[in-house]
């Protein structure tokens, strides 16, 4: 897509209107066309190859997620954990990617004092980093440890088209909302496809014809800690 031209049109549009902002609302409402549905994710663990971390790497690169080499302050929008059944020392381990579940009823958004964390109409839970005051209440409230705080300034900036974050704000996976709005796929899904695994599928849960809905219908899926009533929207096959 010719990004430049696209922006120019947007700019003209702005220039032409004395109260651009009011009109922008209308344009935005129509612009979030893909957001009419309800985004969700399926991770088919059976297709995850041994030792692959394409999604994690791609996410870091796409979203400028901070990595300082210290587990206390590293930020992980998606992270891999190795698990095994409790108390079975010699059982084989499995790797599960964990990320923000974009809860139907997100506790993080519920507790955010300034509504910096909010749920979009399309179900994506996202942080407005211009507004976050860094109270870290959302880190406390998220039962999935999916939220992270920028304890230090992030120096690396691999993707200049996407902003990085200053220190002092909280963040978590936003399902690549900026890409979804453009009609592109999230970085992790793209990387997973490119790696030949195709384990991650992001799509519209409300549309019964979408790939994700068909996957959910055809397989037995599990969501993490459904008992908490948060309504997580990341579904795992083979967990």
């Amino acid at each position: 897509m010719d990004r430049r031209k696209f922006l120019k049109t947007g700019g003209r549009f702005l220039a032409a209107t004395p109260f651009a902002c009011d009109l922008l609302v209308a344009s935005v409402a129509s612009a979030s066309g893909p957001g009419a549905g309800r985004w969700g994710m399926v991770i088919d663990l059976r297709r995850c190859p041994e030792g692959c971390d394409a999604c994690v790497k791609a996410c870091r690169r796409e979203n400028n997620v901070a990595e300082h080499g210290d587990p206390r302050w590293d930020v992980h929008w998606i992270r891999q954990v190795e698990i095994r059944p409790h108390g079975q020392e010699d059982a084989p381990t499995r790797t599960v990617p964990l990320l923000c579940n974009h809860c139907e009823r997100p506790p993080c958004a519920q507790v955010c004092p300034v509504r910096a964390t909010y749920q979009r109409d399309d179900g994506i839970v996202i942080v407005d980093h211009h507004r976050c005051i860094g109270c870290r209440y959302c880190l406390i409230a998220c039962p999935y440890n999916a939220r992270f705080f920028n304890y230090r300034e992030n120096e690396a900036w691999p993707n200049k088209d996407y902003p990085k974050r200053s220190h002092g704000v909280a963040e978590s996976c936003h399902l690549c909302a900026h890409r979804l709005d453009q009609g592109r796929l999230p970085a992790c899904m793209e990387a997973c496809r490119d790696a030949g695994a195709g384990a991650i599928v992001v799509g519209d849960l409300d549309n019964p014809e979408s790939e994700i809905s068909r996957l959910i219908a055809a397989n037995s899926v599990k969501r993490i800690r459904e008992d908490l009533g948060t309504g997580p929207k990341v579904h795992y096959i083979g967990l």
Binding site: R3, R4, F6, V28, S32, D181
Partner: peptide, 19 residues
């Protein structure tokens, strides 16, 4: 103002400092 509307309303790709 534009920032707030774009960030909160979606359609981030339409308006940016690139312009």
């Amino acid at each position: 103002e534009v920032r707030d509307q774009v960030v909160r309303g979606g359609g981030r790709h339409e308006i940016s400092l690139d312009r």
